[in-house]
Design a protein around this nucleic acid. Structure first.
Lengths: 113, 113
DNA sequence: GCTATGTATAACCGTTTGGTTATGCAAATA
DNA sequence: TATTTGCATAACCAAACGGTTATACATAGC
């Protein structure tokens, strides 16, 4: 349970994705989140800490309860990375692929040897 | 380095995201990928194994080289999870939020007590 | 055939992860 | 005031992670 969290790591765990799925539909106090899983309350608290550390969940104290609210705009970091990568990927034939050309040249040399 | 990988876990590691960024632009043999990082060749091989296990990279033997090719359509799993979650999230006010209503009712009772 | 190259694999290691139980504490309730 | 409820936190644990070095091995080049 260390310091700087990032969103990619946060959503790597299936339980945390499920928690986000729940909170996406309605804000809930931690104990009501915990009811939806078989793991212990401290385990849920730990997941929640990770989710809050990277801004995916915001918590507001409500009496003795702590209301958890999803902040899914933080997923934009993921979306934009995927989009950016796919953009490059789709254009990969348009740019000269130096390595492949070099490889092909080598093969041609081999052929004429 | 165990069995069933999933895409979310694969992209959780910054080095693997960087590798995908590289391969998105051009297919490369493993050693040329390794040149772009300070970590050892076995470390790169391990990352590559994880990436291939979840289908994000395909490898084809080319003589003694192994050409790595990005398969970024596998990122659709991520994209669709994000989209699905955000959809629920954006509609969270439209559906009745049972917990919050219950909470509010309780508060009203408290007020009139 | 010998050497160099590209890569996989094994063995190992410290750190992180995801879980547990036990405990403490503040707010709500009786 | 005493008890219950809703959490956080500490201490602990096994397993997974991300890295290392050493080694093996097939292909390429001389």
């Amino acid at each position: 349970m260390k310091a700087r969290r990032d969103v990619f790591q946060a959503i790597a765990d299936p339980t945390r994705r499920a928690i986000l799925g729940l909170l996406a539909q309605q804000s809930l106090p931690i104990n009501m989140v915990a009811e939806n899983f078989q793991i212990s309350q401290p385990a849920i608290s730990k997941h929640m800490r990770i989710l809050t550390e990277c801004g995916l969940v915001a918590i507001t104290q409500k009496g003795r309860e702590r209301l958890c609210e999803a902040q899914l705009n933080q997923l934009n970091e993921v979306t934009s990375w995927v989009e950016q990568s796919k953009k490059l990927w789709n254009h990969r034939f348009e740019k000269l692929d130096n390595y492949l050309i070099e490889l092909q040249t080598k093969n041609q040399n081999d052929g004429t040897k």
